[in-house]
Simulated scan of single mutants.
Amino acid sequence: MITLGFVYVLAGLTFAIFAALGLGDRSNPKRFGNAAFWGLLALSMLAGDRLGDFGNGLLVLALVAIAGTGQIGRAPGGEVPAGVQAERAAKYGNFLLVVALIIPVVALAGTFLFKWVPGLADPKQATLISLGIGVLIALAVGMARLRPAPLLPAQQGRRLLDAVGWAAILPQMLASLGAVFALAGVGEVVGDLIGAAIPQGSLFGAVVAFGLGMALFTMVMGNAFAAFPVMIAAVGMPLLIKQYDGNPAVVAAIGMLAGFCGTLMTPMAANFNLVPAALLELKNPYGVIKVQIGTAIPLLAVNILFIWLFAF
């Protein structure tokens, strides 16, 4: 049976290759920092379960130290010339899109297949496993048809990851932070503070507090999945669901949407807001956020209204 370990091994080997290629790139003055950062991340994927909590904690501190001291950087050059890109686009046409679409198609198909046919893969991790298989299939199809240099995909992947830098692993770090907050009882503390601010017996006040809290905590933590356990423990479960008998599905689902509104307005959600700006080489690194705020605020208001209308 294929388990989540397959995904960890695949990711670990990928980061290890990036670390080795980065170490050999003498044109990059920060090649040692890059190699150490991606190498440690590869170690966490390949052997994290054997390092133990203390070992993984030290590894995370090392990652923070490398990134915090500015030891990660991108080497100059390495881009495929625009003329070559245009020539390949004209030659291969829509096939390039087909390669990209293989990944989501395989991920979707595998999600259903692994749940219908028992014994092939862990059904609880079917989507992640399918996503990893989809990446391998897309890579194989692209290599067979386009016939690039053997190391070109890895070199370009490394260049892309070096450009993104530490922000590439920020979602993973923030999601872990959310779990730590939940275990530490932060939700209960926040609930006490919010409970004191909400007028006694005010359902709408509790709904507003939950929706705004989801958005604000998401902005702080950069991830709605990290904010959710805190806010559901603080307001969602004790007030909206237990005290006011709200529909748990509506509260949870639309509450997550309220959190996603916060995602649109924070640099902490680096994979959504800072990475695209870096890849597109925008002059303003916060340009994506500035454009999204006009959508996020009214959308947040609508989500809060929907919780109030449909959950009770």
Rank of each mutant, 00 (worst) to 15 (best):
L152M: 10
F310L: 15
F95H: 13
L309P: 04
M268N: 05
T69S: 11
F260P: 00
L136T: 00
F260Q: 13
A277S: 09
F32A: 11
P276Y: 02
L177C: 10
L136D: 04
G12F: 08
V190R: 02
F112K: 14
P267C: 10
T69D: 08
G201Y: 15
L96Q: 14
G134S: 05
L43K: 05
P29I: 06
V84R: 14
W116L: 15
V98K: 01
I307L: 05
A62S: 12
T3G: 14
V251C: 08
L21Q: 03
Y286V: 08
G132S: 06
G205C: 00
D25Y: 10
V117S: 03
R88F: 03
L174I: 10
I129Q: 00
N303Y: 15
L51Y: 01
A226D: 07
L46E: 02
Q85E: 14
L183S: 11
Y244P: 02
G39I: 08
L23K: 00
N94F: 09
F114W: 05
N223H: 15
R145L: 14
G294M: 04
A179G: 15
I289S: 00
K124T: 06
L216T: 04
N94T: 08
D245T: 11
L183C: 04
E87S: 14
V141I: 12
G5Y: 08
D245H: 15
I169C: 01
Y244Q: 06
I297D: 02
K124M: 05
P199E: 07
M214S: 00
T111G: 10
N247F: 09
T69I: 06
A296G: 07
T69P: 06
L136K: 04
V235N: 00
D49K: 09
A35W: 01
R50N: 13
F260L: 15
S202P: 11
G39C: 10
A107I: 08
Q155D: 07
F312M: 07
F225T: 10
G191A: 03
N271Q: 14
W116P: 07
L152R: 13
L280A: 15
G294I: 08
V106D: 00
Q71N: 12
S202W: 05
F18R: 00
P81G: 04
A182M: 10
A270R: 01
P248Q: 07
P148W: 03
G73E: 05
F225A: 11
A16R: 09
Q125S: 15
Q125E: 15
G213H: 02
R50G: 09
M231H: 02
T263A: 08
Y286M: 07
L10P: 08
L203R: 13
L193Y: 11
G213P: 00
P267S: 15
G134D: 03
S130K: 01
R50M: 12
G178M: 07
G187I: 00
A20D: 09
L170Y: 12
Q155M: 11
A100Y: 08
L305Q: 05
G73W: 09
D53I: 14
I241L: 11
